[in-house]
Design a protein around this nucleic acid. Structure first.
Lengths: 216, 216
DNA sequence: CAAATTTTTGACCGATTGGACAAACGTTAG
DNA sequence: CTAACGTTTGTCCAATCGGTCAAAAATTTG
């Protein structure tokens, strides 16, 4: 992809230790934010001393940057899979489901991004205006095609994507609030199934009563 | 309300300076989070020296705590206004509109809360499980009544509220991302009107095409 | 005016931070 | 064994942090 960034040669130990550090850093950064996290915390979570950690990543920012670059790919994978083949409504429904599953299975990754964006995305702004915008514009065009073909209701594709991001990631980023409000009973493990059912209904039929609801 | 917390007597200057500090702190905290903000930053934003600021608020946490208590009332005002009188669909639509207006007009307040929740809400957890849960449960009961009466579609009221929070606050909390993706043209001042139109359609009719769409 | 009180500030402190560095340790190859 | 190389750590440092304190400055009170 990027030219000029020669991939450095690494020993087997370096590979493993770097992975260990990144895993620990994900845990710490996602819980405390970048400035709220210390190298010592990450080192302890990785089971090594601070100077040893700094032997593998020379600066705190390097860890964060590496994490972000890797995560962006994982995070956008569901959107990349949104394809023009297949039934549009089914395609959107499975996109929503997959995003919700990611919020459930990778909440740390979600919070890491949320933290970064919340504080103005100082470290990944170029990625947002570049890679991300390109991808979204591309998928928005696909969705627009579906609308023109009368397969789904006509509306703003960009804001549609935003609303899917917002509603699904909410269950990762605002997890403590969701659980506090739902209480011990409804806030247990079943909350993601409840959310999935609700979101499917919301995005397909909205809130209007009866009318000519569920087809097929 | 709370007994035992005697309201301290304050001079006119103390009132004004405390307001000045809280305004500055809102700016700084919302942009950098609690741990990412320094007393010096807040003091400079308030136009005073650090010791002078600490004369009005003895600890950094006191500023944050005072901010949070005040903001929670403002922030939940739209939900409090959700009433059983009037047409349910109209009531919900105006709630969504008001929440979106708050995201537009008070983005710093939104980000302040988002920052706090993201990091596990260590300082306001009691408020979430107490005051907030009570309010949401109460309004969920109102919405449930509408569903039983066939006024709106049957679905989960709690997750409905979550989805309204998520979609509207997204435009404050993830503002930089929204603007980066929409670009200079669509990301300008008109983005909130676009969002309002989209959200109204989403929550009322969903994405299913044609069918028996907009009534009235 | 002068005394009392409130407000403001410069200087300072201990703790924590990100990071540097040389020495020690471990491993492998000859 | 020993030289070379990769890995690990104890120690240290300058910068920054939240917060203290005494004294100066401003304001209010009599």
């Amino acid at each position: 992809m990027t030219i000029g960034t020669a991939a450095p040669r690494r020993t087997r130990i370096q590979q493993e230790k770097r992975e260990l550090i990144l895993e620990a850093a994900l845990e710490v950064f996602s819980a405390n934010g970048f400035r709220g996290s210390t190298i010592d915390q990450i080192a302890e979570a990785a089971g090594m001393s601070k100077p040893n950690l700094l032997y593998y990543f020379r600066r705190k920012e390097d860890i964060h940057e590496t994490l972000m670059q890797r995560l962006l790919d994982t995070w956008l994978a569901p959107l990349r899979e949104l394809d023009d083949i297949g039934d549009p409504l089914t395609e959107l429904r499975s996109y929503i489901r997959r995003k919700l599953e990611m919020a459930r299975d990778f909440p740390r990754e979600s919070r890491l991004f949320a933290n970064e964006i919340l504080q103005g995305a100082p470290r990944i702004m170029p990625l947002l205006a570049g890679e991300l915008k390109t991808l979204v514009d591309e998928k928005a065009a696909v969705i627009k095609g579906w609308m023109r073909a009368g397969k789904i209701a006509k509306t703003d594709p960009w804001h549609l994507i935003f609303s899917i991001w917002a509603t699904t990631q909410h269950y990762a980023d605002f997890d403590v609030q969701v659980r506090a409000v739902l209480g011990p009973n409804r806030g247990g493990d079943g909350r993601f199934e409840d959310a999935a059912r609700f979101l499917e209904q919301l995005f397909l039929d909205g809130l209007k009563p009866k009318g000519s609801a569920s087809s097929k």
